[in-house]
Nucleic acid binder design. Sequence first.
DNA 1: TGAACATTTGAGCAGTTATTCAAATGAGGT
DNA 2: ACCTCATTTGAATAACTGCTCAAATGTTCA
Lengths: 132, 132
Amino acid sequence: MTTDMKSPKDQIPVSMADDICDEFRCSPDKVAHWQGKLPPLKDVAATFKVLADETRTSILYLLAHEELCVCDIATILGTTVSNVSHHLRLLRAQRLVKYRREGKMVIYSLDDEHVLTLINQAFIHVQHQDQR
Amino acid sequence: MTTDMKSPKDQIPVSMADDICDEFRCSPDKVAHWQGKLPPLKDVAATFKVLADETRTSILYLLAHEELCVCDIATILGTTVSNVSHHLRLLRAQRLVKYRREGKMVIYSLDDEHVLTLINQAFIHVQHQDQR
DNA sequence: TGAACATTTGAGCAGTTATTCAAATGAGGT
DNA sequence: ACCTCATTTGAATAACTGCTCAAATGTTCA
Protein backbone atom coordinates (compact mmCIF):
# COMPACT_ATOMS: atom_id res chain seq x y z
CA MET A 1 0.00 0.00 0.00
CA THR A 2 2.17 2.80 -1.26
CA THR A 3 1.44 6.27 -0.04
CA ASP A 4 3.40 8.49 -2.39
CA MET A 5 4.15 8.34 -6.07
CA LYS A 6 7.52 9.69 -6.94
CA SER A 7 7.80 12.25 -9.67
CA PRO A 8 10.99 11.67 -11.65
CA LYS A 9 11.49 15.43 -11.66
CA ASP A 10 12.24 15.33 -7.94
CA GLN A 11 15.45 13.40 -8.47
CA ILE A 12 16.80 15.78 -11.12
CA PRO A 13 19.04 18.57 -9.83
CA VAL A 14 17.65 22.05 -10.29
CA SER A 15 20.35 23.03 -12.76
CA MET A 16 19.23 20.32 -15.17
CA ALA A 17 15.52 20.95 -14.69
CA ASP A 18 15.45 23.85 -17.11
CA ASP A 19 14.16 21.53 -19.80
CA ILE A 20 10.84 22.38 -18.23
CA CYS A 21 10.17 24.22 -21.46
CA ASP A 22 10.18 20.89 -23.22
CA GLU A 23 7.29 19.86 -21.06
CA PHE A 24 4.98 21.96 -23.19
CA ARG A 25 5.30 20.03 -26.38
CA CYS A 26 2.04 18.75 -27.79
CA SER A 27 -0.59 21.18 -26.51
CA PRO A 28 1.00 23.93 -24.42
CA ASP A 29 -2.38 25.41 -23.60
CA LYS A 30 -3.89 22.20 -22.32
CA VAL A 31 -0.82 21.37 -20.28
CA ALA A 32 -0.63 24.88 -18.84
CA HIS A 33 -4.29 24.78 -17.92
CA TRP A 34 -3.73 21.91 -15.51
CA GLN A 35 -0.74 23.38 -13.68
CA GLY A 36 -1.39 22.85 -9.99
CA LYS A 37 -5.05 22.17 -10.54
CA LEU A 38 -5.07 18.45 -9.85
CA PRO A 39 -7.02 17.53 -6.70
CA PRO A 40 -5.48 15.19 -4.10
CA LEU A 41 -6.03 12.00 -6.04
CA LYS A 42 -3.40 10.27 -3.95
CA ASP A 43 -5.91 9.98 -1.14
CA VAL A 44 -8.59 8.79 -3.51
CA ALA A 45 -6.31 6.07 -4.82
CA ALA A 46 -5.41 5.13 -1.24
CA THR A 47 -9.10 4.72 -0.46
CA PHE A 48 -9.52 2.41 -3.41
CA LYS A 49 -6.45 0.43 -2.33
CA VAL A 50 -8.10 -0.50 0.93
CA LEU A 51 -11.08 -1.86 -1.00
CA ALA A 52 -9.00 -3.49 -3.72
CA ASP A 53 -8.88 -6.85 -2.01
CA GLU A 54 -11.57 -9.50 -2.06
CA THR A 55 -11.00 -10.57 1.53
CA ARG A 56 -11.39 -7.01 2.78
CA THR A 57 -14.46 -6.15 0.72
CA SER A 58 -15.98 -9.43 1.85
CA ILE A 59 -15.33 -8.59 5.48
CA LEU A 60 -16.95 -5.18 5.05
CA TYR A 61 -19.88 -6.73 3.23
CA LEU A 62 -20.42 -9.24 6.03
CA LEU A 63 -20.13 -6.65 8.77
CA ALA A 64 -22.60 -4.46 6.93
CA HIS A 65 -25.22 -7.07 7.67
CA GLU A 66 -24.28 -8.20 11.15
CA GLU A 67 -21.52 -8.04 13.70
CA LEU A 68 -19.26 -11.07 13.77
CA CYS A 69 -16.31 -12.50 15.66
CA VAL A 70 -12.99 -13.13 13.92
CA CYS A 71 -13.47 -16.86 13.87
CA ASP A 72 -16.84 -16.63 12.16
CA ILE A 73 -15.54 -14.28 9.51
CA ALA A 74 -12.65 -16.63 8.78
CA THR A 75 -14.96 -19.63 8.54
CA ILE A 76 -17.45 -17.90 6.29
CA LEU A 77 -14.74 -16.64 3.97
CA GLY A 78 -12.89 -19.94 4.02
CA THR A 79 -9.59 -18.53 5.14
CA THR A 80 -7.37 -18.39 8.22
CA VAL A 81 -8.22 -16.57 11.42
CA SER A 82 -4.75 -15.06 11.26
CA ASN A 83 -5.33 -13.77 7.78
CA VAL A 84 -8.63 -12.17 8.74
CA SER A 85 -7.03 -10.60 11.79
CA HIS A 86 -4.36 -9.01 9.63
CA HIS A 87 -6.97 -7.52 7.32
CA LEU A 88 -9.07 -6.34 10.26
CA ARG A 89 -6.08 -4.49 11.61
CA LEU A 90 -5.85 -2.56 8.37
CA LEU A 91 -9.58 -1.83 8.33
CA ARG A 92 -9.37 -0.76 11.95
CA ALA A 93 -6.51 1.63 11.15
CA GLN A 94 -8.74 3.17 8.49
CA ARG A 95 -11.57 3.38 11.05
CA LEU A 96 -13.82 1.38 8.77
CA VAL A 97 -14.55 -1.21 11.46
CA LYS A 98 -14.78 -1.11 15.23
CA TYR A 99 -14.60 -3.90 17.80
CA ARG A 100 -15.49 -4.83 21.31
CA ARG A 101 -14.48 -7.71 23.52
CA GLU A 102 -17.08 -10.20 24.62
CA GLY A 103 -15.56 -12.89 26.79
CA LYS A 104 -12.85 -14.62 24.85
CA MET A 105 -14.16 -13.36 21.57
CA VAL A 106 -13.71 -10.04 19.81
CA ILE A 107 -16.79 -8.85 17.98
CA TYR A 108 -16.27 -6.67 14.95
CA SER A 109 -18.79 -4.35 13.36
CA LEU A 110 -18.90 -1.65 10.72
CA ASP A 111 -17.75 1.80 11.80
CA ASP A 112 -18.28 3.67 8.53
CA GLU A 113 -21.55 3.38 6.69
CA HIS A 114 -20.25 5.42 3.82
CA VAL A 115 -17.94 2.76 2.40
CA LEU A 116 -21.04 0.74 1.63
CA THR A 117 -22.04 3.42 -0.85
CA LEU A 118 -18.69 2.92 -2.49
CA ILE A 119 -19.03 -0.86 -2.56
CA ASN A 120 -22.56 -0.64 -3.90
CA GLN A 121 -21.47 1.73 -6.64
CA ALA A 122 -18.73 -0.71 -7.58
CA PHE A 123 -21.36 -3.44 -7.74
CA ILE A 124 -23.44 -1.36 -10.10
CA HIS A 125 -20.32 -0.68 -12.12
CA VAL A 126 -19.60 -4.39 -12.52
CA GLN A 127 -23.13 -5.08 -13.74
CA HIS A 128 -22.93 -2.03 -15.94
CA GLN A 129 -19.73 -3.42 -17.44
CA ASP A 130 -21.11 -6.91 -17.99
CA GLN A 131 -23.85 -5.69 -20.28
CA ARG A 132 -21.62 -4.14 -22.95
CA MET B 1 -3.50 -7.46 -9.87
CA THR B 2 -4.59 -10.80 -8.51
CA THR B 3 -7.81 -12.25 -9.82
CA ASP B 4 -8.61 -15.14 -7.51
CA MET B 5 -8.19 -15.72 -3.81
CA LYS B 6 -7.35 -19.27 -2.93
CA SER B 7 -9.28 -21.07 -0.28
CA PRO B 8 -6.97 -23.29 1.77
CA LYS B 9 -9.71 -25.91 1.81
CA ASP B 10 -9.09 -26.59 -1.85
CA GLN B 11 -5.65 -28.01 -1.21
CA ILE B 12 -6.82 -30.42 1.50
CA PRO B 13 -7.69 -33.94 0.30
CA VAL B 14 -11.33 -34.86 0.69
CA SER B 15 -10.58 -37.54 3.24
CA MET B 16 -9.15 -34.98 5.60
CA ALA B 17 -11.79 -32.36 4.94
CA ASP B 18 -14.32 -33.98 7.27
CA ASP B 19 -13.30 -31.51 9.93
CA ILE B 20 -15.83 -29.34 8.17
CA CYS B 21 -17.88 -29.77 11.34
CA ASP B 22 -15.21 -27.78 13.13
CA GLU B 23 -15.94 -24.92 10.82
CA PHE B 24 -19.06 -24.17 12.80
CA ARG B 25 -17.39 -23.26 16.02
CA CYS B 26 -18.33 -19.84 17.31
CA SER B 27 -21.80 -19.18 15.89
CA PRO B 28 -23.03 -22.11 13.79
CA ASP B 29 -26.19 -20.24 12.86
CA LYS B 30 -24.41 -17.14 11.60
CA VAL B 31 -21.92 -19.18 9.63
CA ALA B 32 -24.62 -21.39 8.14
CA HIS B 33 -26.66 -18.37 7.16
CA TRP B 34 -23.92 -17.15 4.81
CA GLN B 35 -23.33 -20.45 3.04
CA GLY B 36 -23.21 -19.67 -0.68
CA LYS B 37 -24.79 -16.28 -0.17
CA LEU B 38 -21.76 -14.09 -0.81
CA PRO B 39 -22.10 -12.00 -3.98
CA PRO B 40 -19.24 -11.90 -6.51
CA LEU B 41 -17.04 -9.54 -4.53
CA LYS B 42 -14.05 -10.69 -6.53
CA ASP B 43 -15.23 -8.51 -9.40
CA VAL B 44 -15.89 -5.62 -7.06
CA ALA B 45 -12.38 -5.87 -5.67
CA ALA B 46 -11.02 -6.07 -9.22
CA THR B 47 -12.84 -2.85 -10.07
CA PHE B 48 -11.29 -1.13 -7.09
CA LYS B 49 -7.88 -2.47 -8.09
CA VAL B 50 -8.03 -0.61 -11.38
CA LEU B 51 -8.71 2.62 -9.50
CA ALA B 52 -6.23 1.93 -6.70
CA ASP B 53 -3.40 3.79 -8.38
CA GLU B 54 -2.84 7.53 -8.37
CA THR B 55 -1.59 7.66 -11.94
CA ARG B 56 -4.67 5.86 -13.25
CA THR B 57 -7.19 7.86 -11.26
CA SER B 58 -5.40 11.01 -12.41
CA ILE B 59 -5.63 9.92 -16.03
CA LEU B 60 -9.34 9.24 -15.66
CA TYR B 61 -9.84 12.56 -13.89
CA LEU B 62 -8.07 14.43 -16.69
CA LEU B 63 -9.95 12.62 -19.44
CA ALA B 64 -13.20 13.35 -17.68
CA HIS B 65 -12.60 17.01 -18.46
CA GLU B 66 -11.07 16.86 -21.93
CA GLU B 67 -9.53 14.48 -24.39
CA LEU B 68 -5.75 14.40 -24.38
CA CYS B 69 -2.83 12.81 -26.20
CA VAL B 70 -0.41 10.51 -24.36
CA CYS B 71 2.34 13.09 -24.33
CA ASP B 72 0.14 15.72 -22.70
CA ILE B 73 -1.06 13.33 -20.02
CA ALA B 74 2.52 12.38 -19.22
CA THR B 75 3.59 16.02 -19.03
CA ILE B 76 0.69 17.07 -16.84
CA LEU B 77 1.19 14.17 -14.46
CA GLY B 78 4.96 14.62 -14.43
CA THR B 79 5.78 11.10 -15.48
CA THR B 80 7.03 9.14 -18.48
CA VAL B 81 5.14 8.71 -21.74
CA SER B 82 5.94 5.02 -21.47
CA ASN B 83 4.48 4.82 -18.02
CA VAL B 84 1.27 6.53 -19.09
CA SER B 85 1.00 4.26 -22.09
CA HIS B 86 1.22 1.19 -19.88
CA HIS B 87 -1.56 2.49 -17.66
CA LEU B 88 -3.68 3.45 -20.65
CA ARG B 89 -3.39 -0.09 -21.92
CA LEU B 90 -4.91 -1.35 -18.70
CA LEU B 91 -7.68 1.25 -18.76
CA ARG B 92 -8.35 0.39 -22.41
CA ALA B 93 -8.63 -3.31 -21.55
CA GLN B 94 -11.25 -2.36 -18.96
CA ARG B 95 -13.01 -0.23 -21.57
CA LEU B 96 -12.76 2.81 -19.34
CA VAL B 97 -11.03 4.87 -22.02
CA LYS B 98 -11.19 4.93 -25.80
CA TYR B 99 -8.76 6.37 -28.34
CA ARG B 100 -8.46 7.59 -31.88
CA ARG B 101 -5.47 8.38 -34.03
CA GLU B 102 -4.94 11.92 -35.18
CA GLY B 103 -1.81 12.19 -37.28
CA LYS B 104 1.13 11.02 -35.27
CA MET B 105 -0.73 11.43 -32.05
CA VAL B 106 -3.22 9.19 -30.29
CA ILE B 107 -6.01 11.04 -28.56
CA TYR B 108 -7.54 9.38 -25.52
CA SER B 109 -10.93 10.11 -24.01
CA LEU B 110 -13.23 8.67 -21.39
CA ASP B 111 -15.34 5.71 -22.44
CA ASP B 112 -17.21 5.08 -19.21
CA GLU B 113 -18.91 7.94 -17.44
CA HIS B 114 -19.87 5.72 -14.57
CA VAL B 115 -16.38 5.43 -13.09
CA LEU B 116 -16.58 9.13 -12.35
CA THR B 117 -19.40 8.40 -9.92
CA LEU B 118 -17.05 5.99 -8.21
CA ILE B 119 -14.20 8.49 -8.11
CA ASN B 120 -16.47 11.25 -6.83
CA GLN B 121 -17.80 8.99 -4.10
CA ALA B 122 -14.23 8.21 -3.09
CA PHE B 123 -13.58 11.93 -2.94
CA ILE B 124 -16.51 12.42 -0.64
CA HIS B 125 -15.29 9.51 1.42
CA VAL B 126 -11.87 11.11 1.87
CA GLN B 127 -13.40 14.38 3.04
CA HIS B 128 -15.80 12.43 5.22
CA GLN B 129 -12.81 10.66 6.80
CA ASP B 130 -10.80 13.83 7.35
CA GLN B 131 -13.45 15.36 9.59
CA ARG B 132 -13.43 12.70 12.27
C1' DT C 1 13.52 6.46 -48.84
C1' DG C 2 14.91 8.33 -44.66
C1' DA C 3 14.67 11.45 -40.75
C1' DA C 4 11.79 13.03 -36.89
C1' DC C 5 8.22 12.54 -33.75
C1' DA C 6 4.45 9.94 -30.97
C1' DT C 7 3.29 5.88 -29.13
C1' DT C 8 3.61 1.01 -27.98
C1' DT C 9 5.79 -2.99 -26.27
C1' DG C 10 8.71 -6.18 -23.55
C1' DA C 11 12.14 -7.18 -20.20
C1' DG C 12 14.04 -6.25 -15.78
C1' DC C 13 14.09 -4.24 -11.17
C1' DA C 14 12.67 -2.55 -6.74
C1' DG C 15 9.14 -2.09 -3.70
C1' DT C 16 4.75 -3.76 -1.99
C1' DT C 17 1.19 -7.07 -0.71
C1' DA C 18 -1.46 -11.21 0.77
C1' DT C 19 -0.90 -15.29 2.90
C1' DT C 20 0.99 -18.73 5.98
C1' DC C 21 3.23 -20.46 10.06
C1' DA C 22 4.79 -20.23 14.73
C1' DA C 23 4.82 -17.95 18.81
C1' DA C 24 2.77 -14.49 22.04
C1' DT C 25 -1.12 -12.37 24.39
C1' DG C 26 -5.51 -12.27 26.65
C1' DA C 27 -9.61 -14.08 29.00
C1' DG C 28 -12.51 -17.77 31.07
C1' DG C 29 -13.24 -22.02 33.46
C1' DT C 30 -11.68 -25.74 36.55
C1' DA D 1 -2.01 -22.06 38.87
C1' DC D 2 -3.09 -24.47 34.83
C1' DC D 3 -5.38 -25.58 30.61
C1' DT D 4 -8.14 -24.21 26.73
C1' DC D 5 -9.93 -21.28 23.38
C1' DA D 6 -9.93 -16.74 20.57
C1' DT D 7 -7.24 -13.42 18.82
C1' DT D 8 -3.08 -10.85 17.79
C1' DT D 9 1.50 -10.31 16.25
C1' DG D 10 5.90 -10.86 13.67
C1' DA D 11 8.74 -13.05 10.42
C1' DA D 12 9.24 -15.34 6.15
C1' DT D 13 7.80 -16.22 1.58
C1' DA D 14 5.79 -16.10 -2.96
C1' DA D 15 3.33 -13.37 -6.06
C1' DC D 16 2.24 -9.05 -7.91
C1' DT D 17 2.61 -4.06 -9.21
C1' DG D 18 4.40 0.22 -11.01
C1' DC D 19 8.21 2.24 -13.10
C1' DT D 20 12.23 2.60 -16.18
C1' DC D 21 14.97 1.63 -20.05
C1' DA D 22 15.74 0.15 -24.69
C1' DA D 23 13.95 -1.30 -28.76
C1' DA D 24 10.03 -1.71 -32.02
C1' DT D 25 6.03 0.14 -34.45
C1' DG D 26 3.47 3.57 -36.82
C1' DT D 27 2.82 8.14 -38.98
C1' DT D 28 4.07 12.43 -41.24
C1' DC D 29 6.87 15.18 -44.02
C1' DA D 30 10.80 16.39 -46.91
